[in-house]
Design a protein around this nucleic acid. Sequence first.
DNA 1: CAAGCGAGAAATGTCTGACAATTGAAAATC
DNA 2: GATTTTCAATTGTCAGACATTTCTCGCTTG
Lengths: 244, 244
Amino acid sequence: MKIDPTSSVDLSAQIAKAIRDAIVSGALIVDERLPSEAELAEQFDVSRPTVREALKRLAAQSLIRTQRGASGGAFVNRLSFRDAYPQQITTSTLLLSMNAVSFETACEARYALERACAPLSAQRRTPDQLATMRAEVHRQGQPGLSDESFCDSDVAFHRALVDGAGNPVLSYQLAGAVEAMQPLMNMITFTARSRAEIIKLHTAIADALDARDAGAVEAALTELERYTQSLARDVMEKRAKKRG
Amino acid sequence: MKIDPTSSVDLSAQIAKAIRDAIVSGALIVDERLPSEAELAEQFDVSRPTVREALKRLAAQSLIRTQRGASGGAFVNRLSFRDAYPQQITTSTLLLSMNAVSFETACEARYALERACAPLSAQRRTPDQLATMRAEVHRQGQPGLSDESFCDSDVAFHRALVDGAGNPVLSYQLAGAVEAMQPLMNMITFTARSRAEIIKLHTAIADALDARDAGAVEAALTELERYTQSLARDVMEKRAKKRG
DNA sequence: CAAGCGAGAAATGTCTGACAATTGAAAATC
DNA sequence: GATTTTCAATTGTCAGACATTTCTCGCTTG
């Protein structure tokens, strides 16, 4: 763990990097206690506030947690999928909104990833997950449902589909893609007719999963992508007309 | 932006959350300058070090950048895919190593995601990307190549395959999955025979992409997954024997 | 007049020292 | 022996100061 005080980089950033590297390399193991702030300050030959800034950087990435009190301190955190979800979603959301990623591109990625889950989900989905999907489809058909609630239910439906693959790595990767799309999806106003079409395709997906027919799941997802893209194009055209 | 000084949560965490929410919601836009640390301290009624800790948390997530000097300050950062890559990879790596994700699970996720890219890549890959893949395959066949270099080349090959889909969202999602697998892949010692088999399959993938044959790409990827899994099983069995 | 130079101002980066709040453990008390 | 008290260690927060960087603006000089 070496620090270069003459570098143009913040000392706290250097210290954070040194500790992060130690965690990633396995030199610091899960639940191990770091030296106290005072000790770290002495080791790195900096002041305590500087050490604290470094620790806050690591805490922001969920790499450590801190506890106050006598036997307190900073501990290496076991990074769980559950902890990583919100960060992944926040990052993905900002990536889409700040980089002007087109609806088309985001949608394509999302459905490509979902199709990747289809064969596994067809094979492994639990009755529970299937029931969740059926329930969400039913909810989507209820009259008076707001566009936002409809989107929420849509996310829940697809989430169940992805979780059906029984692979936490896939679920984690897809959480970002699916949830980050929501602000984009919310731009679409769902008419009664388009809702009916989507529900029809959702039902087809659920039926295919029920029958463990991977090919049918993929086909329905492809069709759903095609339909979603066409809805988005309609919205864009209407906007262009309004502006023009 | 409200702060509760009586809450058990760190003030700096609350302040970071308030600013993060403002960024995500769009209240603060890209390249907008935040108030100076002194002003923020006054607004939130906390001291400057506390504000600084909050800003470091945001900097750790690449949400802001800071500049020293007269017209300096903290600015909302345009979160780019390039900035997000290393974080995604670090997080994915730790998720795999800290949660005892099996090689099997990680491998399955990786190839499922890659197969998702296959149709798009077959359709869109540039001659450049194809040339990269051919070059990496050639490198993999050179004698005296270390296991580590072989793995590096493997990553580069698959990276080109994924980038061939021409979808930055997919590339971003896959970067984590592919690169995070490397430490696991490095556990496998590649014999001359297994390298030859892998090169054969890589060649098949490149040929299929050359011919824009999506089905053949998927088939070769499936075969490569099957073979990689069998290699991993061999390693595991040998280890079990040594221990037993 | 233009170009360069320098002083100053504004902002972040860092340090010192102190106190508050929390918490576990040891010591004291019943 | 059980309970309460005290204490020490640690993080959380604050105040003030100085160092460093960088832009701006006015002044000097060719």
